[in-house]
């Protein structure tokens, strides 16, 4: 709120005020109603999606017993872990390099770094499909690399979009930091590495963790790119569920959805709590 003017200036009076409140309440209802309905119906006993016939956990049991879903979940966990670790390292280095140094060609790098964030999923998916189609053989020459196995292609393409998101989050953190701390460390004869490890790294850690959580979320979220590069036998859960959804609704999908939703919401909460904790410490 700008310059200490009372909130009352901004608050409309009379009917408009209540319209504004009512509208906002409705938008929040719009945000959450579908999610609540989905959770509610996942406990439905009936196998008709729209008809409530009693509380039951049978669809969660079916979920646990479904080997295809279980194995696709495992694929997702692997892709998530690998792509997050790689993109956090590369993204953090990129953020440091842009925020803390000046070098020739930096502007161009900065621009390219933004592209994966704004590029539509479909275009990215087409890019990856065409690229691996043309170059898989070349990569397979490298010992230990086998791109016919979908898992590696999935990790490689997830890293391609995650690096950018990680670096944006870390850069936001770096921009708010005082470089004087690092300079003070250098004045006290710390080597650059020591200054980085003891001063910079602990300070940017919340940004790095935030970036990691974002990478995990995006990796779990991705459907389009993954369905273009995944091979038989390495289907991540999002692609598997998407395939099920296109065939139609079933209470089993509701249960799977609620589990995925719970996982992604836990991640969001974790990152929000993290952000809160670190920003309040700063004040």
């Amino acid at each position: 709120m700008g310059k200490g003017v009372a909130l009352s200036t901004a608050e409309p009076m009379g009917a408009t005020r209540w319209l504004l409140r009512g509208h906002s309440a409705l938008v929040y209802a719009f945000f959450y109603a579908p999610i609540i309905v989905l959770v509610f119906y996942s406990f439905n006993e009936s196998h008709l999606v729209g008809r409530w016939s009693g509380f039951s956990l049978r669809w969660y049991e079916a979920f646990v017993q479904n080997d295809n879903i279980q194995s696709s979940l495992w694929v997702s966990v692997k892709i998530c872990a690998a792509s997050t670790v790689i993109s956090v390292v590369l993204g953090t280095l990129a953020a440091l390099s842009i925020e803390r140094f000046r070098w020739w060609g930096q502007k161009a790098f900065d621009a390219v770094l933004y592209l994966p964030i704004i590029i539509p999923d479909v275009t990215m998916a087409v890019m990856m499909l065409v690229f691996f189609g043309e170059t898989a053989q070349l990569f397979n020459v490298i010992p230990g690399v086998d791109l016919t196995n979908g898992l590696e292609k999935l990790v490689l393409s997830h890293v391609a979009f995650n690096i950018s998101f990680v670096s944006v989050v870390v850069r936001a953190r770096l921009a708010n930091l005082d470089e004087a701390m690092e300079e003070a460390a250098a004045d006290l004869y710390a080597s650059r590495w020591q200054a980085f490890r003891r001063v910079t790294l602990p300070q940017i850690m919340p940004g790095v963790l935030g970036g990691a959580l974002l990478a995990v979320t995006l990796s779990l979220d991705d459907v389009v790119v993954s369905s273009f590069v995944s091979a038989v036998g390495a289907t991540p859960v999002s692609v598997y569920v998407f395939g099920m959804l296109r065939k139609g609704v079933s209470p089993l999908i509701n249960a799977v959805s609620v589990v995925i939703l719970a996982a992604s919401m836990t991640l969001v909460m974790a990152s929000l709590v993290l952000e809160r904790a670190t920003s309040s410490r700063k004040r």
Binding site: V89, L90, G91, L93, A94, L96, S97, I98, R100, F101, R102, W103, W104, G105, Q106, F109, V112, L113, L115, P116, T123, V126, M127, M128, V130, F131, E134, T135, L156, S157, V159, A160, I163, S164, S167, R192
Partner: peptide, 27 residues
């Protein structure tokens, strides 16, 4: 210092060149 900055950015740069810019070129 400038060289150091470039070196830090290099891994991500190479990665994005191979797995983003080249794919874009193919399309």
């Amino acid at each position: 210092r400038s060289r150091q900055g470039l070196l830090m950015g290099l891994p991500a740069m190479i990665y994005l060149f191979v797995f983003f810019v080249i794919p874009l070129g193919f399309v």
